[in-house]
């Protein structure tokens, strides 16, 4: 196992050793925090639904931090008391992600081959929260793994090793899914869906979003409010090739540019208008909304 180390300023973790150290900023919009905590206690897998940039990943990090906070653990190696944190393993799923990418595979070694655990296997072993982001993107064979892990069995079969791993106490599978932009082909199967409770994420209401933008970007409240207003307006244009409209993330980017002294209209142009669409007519329309809101 790789030791925690530092190369050129970047901190390197083994996947299962990464945990969230600083409290991530998360502004609860509804009862999602309480829901997640309860679900975690009951080990009910969670499905996070919602458009991109609405805060799903941030929420998982926040929850990992919250759930990990109270626990302290004595290190087996040194005997020192170290803070135990909830390990969080995040896997961004893509269309070529196969089951063996998750479970593990044999790698070449000097004298033959060596088995290496995949991220899911590691999460199961250490009892981490395993977050499969955009799960529908992955190949269908991954569902074979998800199913036994998400019902009462909590088992991970590793076919190639002929093993079955019982999940460690703290393990929980969290998946996310964006109902907006997947085509009907990539819809989540019902047999999969019905193993999770679903927490729906949407873009926060204007005031809350302004608060988030202000916090994340460091721009002033007035700008944050204007950005939130802009977000709301642009989201009204949803079906014009804009997918789900502008994400909170992009609004934060714009806010950060503005906070650093980029003129507001220009910042919105690069962070929002051009980021959202290539259609010149829609661009122009968004631009008009921008110029109406920002001086």
């Amino acid at each position: 196992m790789a030791e925690n180390g530092s190369v050129q300023g970047a901190t390197i973790y083994a996947v299962e050793e990464y945990s969230v150290h600083e409290e991530p900023y998360y502004l609860p919009i509804g009862d999602e925090v309480q829901l997640f905590e309860t679900a975690y206690r009951q080990r009910i897998p969670v499905l996070l639904k919602g458009p991109t940039g609405a805060g799903k990943t941030r929420f998982v990090e926040y929850m990992a931090y919250r759930l990990g906070r109270p626990m302290l653990k004595v290190s087996s190696r040194t005997g020192e008391e170290v803070e135990h944190r909830m390990p969080l393993i995040t896997v961004a799923c893509h269309e070529d992600l196969t089951a063996s990418d998750l479970v593990g595979r044999y790698l070449l070694d000097t004298d033959g081959t060596r088995w290496v655990d995949g991220p899911l296997t590691r999460a199961v072993k250490v009892g981490a929260i395993c977050y499969l982001d955009e799960v529908v993107e992955a190949r269908k064979d991954t569902t074979v793994l998800i199913h036994p892990l998400t019902d009462y069995r909590r088992l991970l079969p590793i076919e190639k090793l002929g093993q079955v791993i019982e999940a460690a106490e703290g393990f929980l599978l969290v998946i996310s899914y964006n109902p907006g932009y997947q085509s009907a082909l990539k819809d989540l199967k019902h047999s999969t869906r019905q193993r999770f409770i679903a927490i729906e994420f949407n873009y926060p209401p204007r005031d809350a979003e302004a608060q988030i933008i202000a916090h994340e970007s460091g721009c002033d409240d007035r700008t944050a409010m204007d950005l939130a207003r802009l977000g709301e307006k642009v989201r009204n244009l949803k079906e014009h090739g804009l997918g789900e409209g502008v994400s909170t993330r992009l609004l934060v980017y714009a806010g950060r540019l503005i906070a650093q002294g980029i003129p507001a209209r220009r910042a919105c142009q690069v962070a929002i208008t051009w980021a959202l669409t290539d259609d010149s007519e829609v661009q122009r329309s968004i631009e008009e909304v921008v110029t109406s809101i920002f001086e």
Partner: peptide, 8 residues
């Protein structure tokens, strides 16, 4: 589109 954005 502009008015649509404004009014929703």
């Amino acid at each position: 589109l502009y008015c649509k954005a404004l009014t929703g």
